[in-house]
Each structure stands twice: as structure tokens, then as C-alpha cells.
């Protein structure tokens, strides 16, 4: 069964220079196990192809059932230099929640 990440998690994103930070929080422990397994650096990098032009770093926060990603070289030069409409990456957490995940029951 395919689900959208949106169904099991929420999050918030913002800017850190030219990198965007994307925090994803699972609603429950089961959801956290899923995101820990599915949101690998490779999968996130692939999802953001054409948006994130640099490295992806991943950090775990089990205390919040959350993962934090740093997407380097993503914001078109950073907050004040960028010509992007979303120069601060505010909508990128929502963009990651678009991801479809295969769940095996």
C-alpha cells in the first residue's frame, strides 16, 4: 500500500545560508520507524532532484520522533541573494511531505 508522507508526519523548514533545513516529525512511534527507514539521505536527495544541488545531511531526534535534514546548495545563494520566490525554503517541508512511501502490512 502506498501512503503519502503527509499522512504520517508534519514538519517545518527554513534557511541556513544557502542550505535549507527540513525537519520532519512523525505523529507516532510507528511513523517514526517508517520515516527512519524510508527517509534515507539517498531517497531525500532523489526526491529533491533539481531543487537541492548539493549534499544532503540527515540527523535523528528520536526524542521528538523527528529527523532533520540539511539540504546544501538549495536556496539560490541564500535568503537575500536568491531570486527564488521561496528564497528561505519555507515551503520545502511541505515539498518533502509529498513523498510517496510503500508500506508492507
Amino acid at each position: 500500500m502506498k501512503i503519502k508522507l503527509l499522512d504520517i508526519a508534519h514538519g517545518r523548514s527554513g534557511d541556513k545560508g544557502d542550505a535549507a533545513n527540513v525537519g520532519i516529525i512523525a505523529y507516532d512511534d510507528n511513523g517514526y520507524n517508517i520515516i527512519k527507514k524510508e527517509l534515507t539521505v539517498e531517497n531525500v536527495k532523489k526526491h529533491f532532484a533539481g531543487i537541492c544541488l548539493g549534499e544532503v545531511e540527515r540527523f535523528e531526534l528520536p526524542n521528538l520522533k523527528a529527523l532533520n535534514f540539511l539540504l546544501h546548495n538549495t536556496l539560490g545563494g541564500g535568503g537575500t541573494v536568491s531570486l527564488k520566490h521561496d528564497a528561505q525554503g519555507k515551503t520545502l517541508a511541505a515539498a518533502l511531505l509529498r513523498m510517496e512511501i510503500e508500506i508492507y502490512e
Binding site: N21, G23, I25
Partner: peptide, 16 residues
């Protein structure tokens, strides 16, 4: 929990 957790993740790098 959810509203505070979202803010805790805002604009952070390495959480440790």
C-alpha cells in the same frame, strides 16, 4: 507537543 516540536526543528543544523 506538535506545535512546539515543529519550532524546535526550525532552522537547526546538527541537533546535538
Amino acid at each position: 507537543f506538535e506545535t512546539v516540536a515543529e519550532q524546535l526543528l526550525y532552522e537547526i543544523g546538527d541537533p546535538k
